[in-house]
Amino acid sequence: MQDLYTWSAKTLQNERDMEWLENRKEHWIPLLATKMRLLYSGYSFVVMCDDERRWFGEYIVSRINDSKNTRPLLPFFEFSSLYNQEITSQEQVALLNDMLSLSFSNGFIYFYIGRGDHTYAKIAKSHEDSYLWLIDEALPNSFQLSENDESLDIKLLQLFKILNKSIDAVLFGEVVL
């Protein structure tokens, strides 16, 4: 059995058109490992995206528990299906976090994909364990992408593919965290 870092590095080498991520594995893999530990510990993932990537949030939630998967169902939820009101104050964010803490007693994290100035980004950034794929913003413990990258959408799909494979590897005991 391999550790997640070794497994991920080999997987990235063997994946077609993933050189860009292989070159950034030092940023990608440690962040992935921390989130896999949380998932494995029973945390739920609340998927949030900015307006331009709303399609991607829907894609994640629809594909993560695809009927073709042979694994157990995973606790990934689209934010708008949990709370569909505009958030305009810190008090509302606190109430939202309280509601989600009560709803997900094992814990939850925000999984945010998008620009760093979006309202959802601000919510995710205020939560300690959030999984952030930020566009045009660099923060510690986040993965940065560029809006000017012509392959941005393809890269997002590739990141999800690797995330999904990593989940399988962890759940089926191919790797240790």
Rank of each mutant, 00 (worst) to 15 (best):
L21R: 07
C49F: 04
L32Q: 10
S44Y: 06
D50Y: 04
S62W: 01
G57A: 09
S44G: 13
R54L: 15
S67P: 00
E52A: 14
L38T: 03
E52W: 09
H27W: 13
M48T: 12
L74T: 00
N65Q: 04
V47A: 01
V47E: 00
F56E: 04
D66I: 07
T34C: 02
E52Y: 10
A33G: 05
W28L: 14
E26N: 08
R54H: 15
N69V: 07
I64E: 02
S62L: 07
D50E: 08
K25W: 01
D50P: 09
W55I: 07
V47Y: 00
V47W: 00
E22A: 15
I29S: 03
I60A: 03
L21C: 09
W28A: 04
L38W: 09
I64V: 13
L32K: 05
E26V: 04
G57H: 09
S41Y: 11
M18Y: 15
K35N: 06
K35L: 05
A33T: 14
F45M: 06
S41E: 14
Y40R: 14
R37T: 02
I29K: 08
R63L: 06
R16A: 15
I60F: 03
L31G: 06
R24L: 02
L39G: 01
A33C: 09
M48E: 13
L32I: 06
E22K: 14
D66L: 03
R37Y: 03
W20T: 08
T70C: 10
G42S: 04
V61G: 02
P72F: 05
F45L: 01
K35E: 09
K68H: 11
R53V: 00
Y43R: 06
R16E: 15
D51Q: 12
R63M: 13
F56W: 07
V47D: 00
F45K: 00
E58T: 11
L21S: 05
P30R: 03
M18H: 15
P72T: 12
G42D: 03
M36E: 10
P72L: 11
W20V: 07
G42Y: 11
N23S: 14
H27V: 10
R71I: 12
V47L: 00
P75E: 14
G42H: 08
S62E: 11
V61Y: 03
Y59L: 12
Y43E: 11
E58G: 12
R63I: 07
